[in-house]
Design a protein around this nucleic acid. Structure first.
Lengths: 341, 341
DNA sequence: GCCTCTTTGTGAAACGTTTCATGGAACGAA
DNA sequence: TTCGTTCCATGAAACGTTTCACAAAGAGGC
């Protein structure tokens, strides 16, 4: 069905190698022959077979990115950033979705290894040592960790300083006069979550404020946020926090919904700060203050590190790039009179 | 670096074909040999080379989905639906992002063709005849159109009845007593947009109501919605619509934001209905009424049609599956007294 | 002891590229 | 004419699988 180089050669009356040359180094073949070959390609509708090409070359031009959740805007932005770099370099990005499931992640990695991809950007489901990834690295496939495991020796990583993010959020709330502050998020197995919490706790301690009330959620979703807020609303007023810092915006949106449903006003009764600054944060019921991460840049930098390692594995030095988050202050954490601008 | 079947064979002291048999039809090789080979595989850390495998097989187990926008929740759900089917069948899904750019779409299709993917699910950037896709189909790669071009002869398609969706939304608003209704969305080059508009117009005409005011936007985004709403707010009160039907939820969220910023209340001053029922619709400033499409099912069905065609191209009959949307009624289109519950 | 079956393993061919050593033609210089 | 260059085209080898016709060796039936 699909024409091969051989048939093109036959039709153009040249040898097989010549067709290949027209494809890969058109300059070294004479104009007439080149033209004849190109016509034959056109007529037969020839399309290169990438499997054969890769088999011969031993490696592919595809970079994979394995994300925890395709539908999380955080990752879609990271993907976009990575795409811009990889496509600029003539490669292609494939997106794999682990959905936070270790088994799925494992299967994806298996397939990617079989495909001999050029490299893998990954946010692993679990933190800590990654023998599976180590094995891939040993096999010569570069791996860059995204938003995880900074500091491991055998691979690059890009991340945002989550401790700093938590600190910024807590300082902001403390500055606004809040003294009973809650932290909502989970599971604590996620490094991001604990880092943000740690940063917040440190900031509060430094200001001489009490440690935050921690409400752990089973996952970072809108509905988890709703449930956590229900719990908080049930507290006696004297113990109820006047501000909540959420481990991400999805949770914060859920919290916001539930608070509103219970008749509590944000920020007047309870102030709210989220994390990630997703597009919908600004468009929420009450525009949401949120810690913003440079998401696209995270993706771009990760892709750059990967391509760098891939191009020149000998001289490559693993690097761990850490970006600084910043706070986007909106209505959810500001008394009306103090609206910014 | 990477071990090949040959080395495994050598180490296990068997022939090359035997190793292949252990890999593909373990039942036809004797237990002892199988064990020896498996040990060798383990020791060498052998990983199949998928390029070689595909080259030999002539086709891949990868299904591609080319979406207009990875970060649009509509597509992420479709992707998830497709994934569930394809992975259930032992395949893999790669996601490509055209970003609504025809050139990017073209490049993606080129690459996918070179990869000899098993099939392609695609929402093409432009409507109408698709010579590019026809060519792919001719080459024996099944294509299923998602949410586009129902009725074309040489490929399957899945879609949601957008005319019906528009009709449902308009009928709902008319029923609530609205007479001046606006339609916001664009560009009109998108079939979805014109279908939704057509349905709305037909419904209004049938009820003897005037045709809607149409505000065309350059794209379906939050900021486009904001701008459109600014325009509407500028109208003299007597001509200003009392209800707005938006071509999708992003636009509706933008409209909502802008209306609120201008001090107009939703639904009291202006009622609002969106389209897509994305997760954030329910969590918006005012929970958004929205026409809901069975998104995951769209993806699942598309993948099923694709696999069906791929498995048995001879007996395959192209089908065009059309799903029916339904309206999720929320606060944005209901007077308070009439809240559903 | 011979024949036929079955089970298990072998080796070579084929998939479609890219690459590289080789060869021939054309051309100018001597 | 002859030799060295330069320019183009060639054909074969190699990449790592899968598949298939075939062979070897037991197992049983007579």
């Amino acid at each position: 069905m699909a024409a091969s180089i051989k048939e093109v050669a036959q039709r153009a009356g040249v040898s097989l190698g010549t067709v290949s040359n027209v494809l890969n180094r058109p300059d070294i073949v004479s104009p007439q022959t080149r033209k004849r070959v190109q016509e034959a390609i056109e007529e037969l509708g020839f399309v290169r077979n990438d499997s054969a090409r890769q088999l011969r070359a031993g490696r592919s031009r595809t970079v994979a990115i394995v994300v925890l959740d395709v539908s999380n805007p955080f990752f879609t932005d990271v993907v976009r950033g990575a795409e811009s770099i990889v496509e600029g370099a003539g490669g292609m990005v494939v997106v794999c979705n682990s959905g936070g499931d270790a088994a799925r992640e494992h299967r994806h990695l298996d397939v990617l290894e079989e495909q001999r991809v050029q490299g893998i950007l990954v946010t692993p489901v679990s933190d800590g040592k990654q023998p599976r990834l180590d094995r891939i690295v040993t096999r010569g496939i570069p791996v860059v960790l995204v938003d995880r495991g900074a500091g491991l020796a055998n691979q690059c990583s890009v991340a945002v300083d989550d401790v700093l993010g938590g600190r910024i959020a807590a300082e902001h709330l403390a500055e606004r006069g809040h003294r009973r502050i809650a932290f909502v998020g989970g599971p604590m197995a996620l490094r991001q979550v604990t880092d943000r919490r740690t940063g917040a706790e440190a900031a509060l301690a430094e200001q001489g404020l009490p440690a935050p009330l921690v409400v752990e959620t089973p996952m970072l979703s809108v509905s988890a946020g709703r449930q956590a807020a229900d719990e908080i609303v049930g507290l006696p007023t004297t113990r109820r926090p006047t501000a909540i810092f959420c481990a991400n915006d999805l949770v914060a949106l859920g919290v916001l919904q539930a608070l509103t449903a219970h008749g509590l006003r944000v920020p007047d009764d309870i102030a709210l700060v989220g994390y990630d600054d997703i597009e919908f944060a600004a468009g929420a019921a009450v525009p949401l203050s949120s810690v913003r991460q440079p998401r696209e840049q995270l993706g771009r930098t990760a892709a750059q590190l990967l391509l760098e390692e891939s191009t020149d594995p000998e001289h490559h030095e693993h690097r761990h790039v850490v970006f600084q988050p910043e706070l986007a202050v909106r209505q959810s954490s500001e008394r009306k009179r103090r609206r910014t601008r």
